[in-house]
Design a protein around this nucleic acid. Structure first.
Lengths: 205, 205
DNA sequence: TCGTGGATTTACCAAATGGTAAAAATTCAT
DNA sequence: ATGAATTTTTACCATTTGGTAAATCCACGA
């Protein structure tokens, strides 16, 4: 029994759990939690459904595992916001990292968005324990930069919301963006320039 | 048979169709298309499931009806962006209208977001025919304002994306926002001030 | 008031779906 | 090689879910 609080996972266990989680990321991010089926995940992973249930306790277990693994990756750019760096550079670099993530990890962005959109039924605890402390900490950093006159006086909380919204939009609303920008050769670059300009002007004291 | 291309709907038909659509908006926006069940919608509407299917051809019919009705409301603020008004005022008013909509119509915002998030499977045609022409038209308006030196030179397409993202964030990610801002007495007002400041600075030539 | 057409309920169904038991196959240390 | 442990498959099951047929109810105009 690979589930539960057991010892070291075998090589084959690691491989299959990874295959399942990758397939599940595809399926969950495309169809949402309830829209995804174990059969789809199984087919995508190249395994049988009972075989999947040999590695995970159930559908919800897969989803929760995916979400908690994701949280780490997701918060990483914010963790790297350095209180001792140059405020403007730090924030603009943060915007850039988030935009890159929207391009490179769109499935993860959509999985996260879908979960929040439905009221975070399986992630609320994680938000409180992992996200909120980090959020508060970085808001304090931004406040100190404002107090020191290094950047314009903006509401730190809502500034961060604006950064999240503007960057994740390109992953979460990709279907809409692609219809509206048409066959753009380098949409990512234009978005990058726009966000730099926008937040750059905004931050100047 | 009330469905199909029939004559004038009776008063009772209007009432029940409205009840169903309102219930469906609740259920679809909370659980997504596949997560929503006809039984839930029926219960919420206070009708039996077969009775619902007397008024609509099926689950998808309800969803599509909801989406196409929504499109009108959704585009309205953008329609009102006046090419002959003061550019700064026009755009800031647009931001305000969108933010008000996120507060007043969160269900609609989430329904829309969920549909786009999953690749707009039931709305792609609508996006092409209804949204894209309006989007292109208003991008041209913004371009003309930039050419006239009335506002800062920003990419019109991405400026609109930023406005959509920043405002809709408060409806679509409400679960996250409420965890992070805690018991704020007037979160909407703070968001409003922030967005005015932000886009105000950004637009100044 | 009575009949007719629209509205509603009752009783279903077939397919999909999450999940399980147990047999079969495979891996692996000895 | 061989027996034990792990992994995978086969054959199911109970529930949920979108949908239907037909009987029943009810509003309303003549």
């Amino acid at each position: 029994m690979p589930d539960g609080t057991q010892k070291k996972p075998s090589r084959i266990q690691k491989r299959n759990r990874r295959k399942i989680l990758d397939a599940a990321l595809d399926v969950f991010s495309q169809n949402g939690y309830r829209g995804a089926t174990l059969d789809q995940i199984a087919a995508e992973a190249g395994l049988s459904k009972p075989n999947i249930l040999y590695y995970f306790q159930g559908k919800e277990d897969i989803h929760v595992t995916l979400l908690s693994q994701l949280m780490e990756t997701w918060l990483d750019p914010l963790v790297e916001l350095d209180p001792d760096g140059d405020p403007q550079t730090e924030i603009l670099d943060y915007v850039q990292r988030k935009l890159d993530m929207a391009r490179d990890l769109p499935r993860e962005s959509r999985l996260f968005a879908g979960e929040i959109l439905q009221g975070a039924p399986r992630m609320a605890p994680n938000l409180e324990t992992a996200l909120k402390p980090l959020f508060d900490e970085k808001c304090a950093v931004i406040s100190s930069w404002i107090d020191a006159g290094k950047i314009a006086p903006l509401d730190p909380q809502h500034l961060i919301f604006s950064i999240w919204a503007a960057t994740q939009h390109y992953a979460d609303f990709a279907a809409q963006v692609s219809v509206l920008v048409g066959a753009d050769t380098d949409s990512h670059h234009r978005a990058s320039v726009h966000l730099s300009t926008m937040f750059g002007k905004m931050l100047r004291p």
